[in-house]
Design a protein around this nucleic acid. Sequence first.
DNA 1: TTTATAATTAACATTTTGTTAATTGTTAAT
DNA 2: ATTAACAATTAACAAAATGTTAATTATAAA
Lengths: 254, 254
Amino acid sequence: MKNKFITPEGYTSDIAVFTITSEQVGEYKPPKKELKIMLIKRSELNHEGNPNMEAGKWALPGGFVRPEETAFQAAERRLTEETGVEGLKIKHFGVYDSPGRDQRGWIISNAHYVIANEADLRTRKTTYDASEVKLFTLEEALELDLAFDHQTIIEDALWFIKKDMALTTLARHFLPDEFVISELQGVLLTVLDDPSISTDAAFFRKAPTFPFIEAVSEDGKLKKSKRYSKTPAQLYQFNDYQPIVSVYRNKLQG
Amino acid sequence: MKNKFITPEGYTSDIAVFTITSEQVGEYKPPKKELKIMLIKRSELNHEGNPNMEAGKWALPGGFVRPEETAFQAAERRLTEETGVEGLKIKHFGVYDSPGRDQRGWIISNAHYVIANEADLRTRKTTYDASEVKLFTLEEALELDLAFDHQTIIEDALWFIKKDMALTTLARHFLPDEFVISELQGVLLTVLDDPSISTDAAFFRKAPTFPFIEAVSEDGKLKKSKRYSKTPAQLYQFNDYQPIVSVYRNKLQG
DNA sequence: TTTATAATTAACATTTTGTTAATTGTTAAT
DNA sequence: ATTAACAATTAACAAAATGTTAATTATAAA
């Protein structure tokens, strides 16, 4: 069918890949955790051998959406191409379509974010259009001269991460299957600023009652771990409870 | 610059316009409130005089995005064109870009929703490509044979409305500036199903303590209304408090 | 043995809930 | 005038949940 409309000149999909790194700060101590974002350095030439747009700048991984796929599928495909990681839970969070955001013309981008384990990203590889791949703290990333409007996209993604962290059990994607309370606390504190989380006594008293986690047992007795402390600490795992919160109610509803 | 990429054949913006109608169910009684969505009937011919795609079907208002605007701006523009209403708070909630969703080709749609006052929609007008405009209950709307993938879009929009109603003070957009508790309750119940809202005693005891509303005073004394009851009921208004909820905390934080 | 430390528990005063049962103010019908 | 009806509130109170401070516990290392 004849194209009767003025159409965009490109349709792309970008992915903000977040991870939380753990830094061992001493023996028998919970590690210091920090939120990081994965960026790629745009190479000088594209795969056709022509100069690449915004070459040399750091940018979110992403690429053009193909006509036989959705932006979401493109995000999955590109994520695998860039990092070698599959099966992660990608979320769409926004559209960036301001005229002039890309010098090549009217190019629309769908923005996604994904949470990866630090371990997953160890398998990342450098591909033809990413001369370098690196993890940055959010502060570092936002100080760089990023390609296109990727600074705005990252700021927005961060906001969505914070919201999701507070409203859903997103934290589970930053944690191993079995974790101790201090690990959960560490993950939450990378993103949320809340005294009821940062105050140890309050958090340790309350956390075991969260309806969405449960203590792990083994051979009929509670399973403990000494990975971060001398005292064995109880291991927990997330269950399938989906908490629902509301400004009109305090108690959680599933 | 030469276009080197396979590009979409159209970029559109759709808007789900919601309103809550009030039906007087008797004197001195709170009115029955119901969530409705505004749909347009696609006309047989488009403005060029050619047969219109999906003609005769009910659909979300919307249209093609122009290259000098964003999808968001297109939504604002189309909303005004369709309804004559300006200045409402439009929210983007999703992208619909599955191959095959529109027979005309690879056409991407950005979906938005907006809350309008029932009164606002009284000024709505019929335009060249909408032979009819009508409010439907959500049940009615989802039973229609809707154009394109608009059924999916409406289902998704409904989900977002519910979420926003629970997590934000979205309810304010369905209420007059000054309202009584039973009106607030009525609005919430059109979308949320929660005993702490539907149980009168619980809701009336708790509502006055919500940090995001406050009692209205006039001439130094509390302002009351008798619009829905014989007993004068206290009037409230929303303030600027933005409640923040979290699954890890019960008390509200601003 | 002792010390240090993260994890946990105890104890308790304070706040918030959920519920049931009154009260109040006002209209409309005796 | 009285009274019935009824939505909107308030009262009262037991049950839960929260915030805080102060123990306790288990273990490694000195």
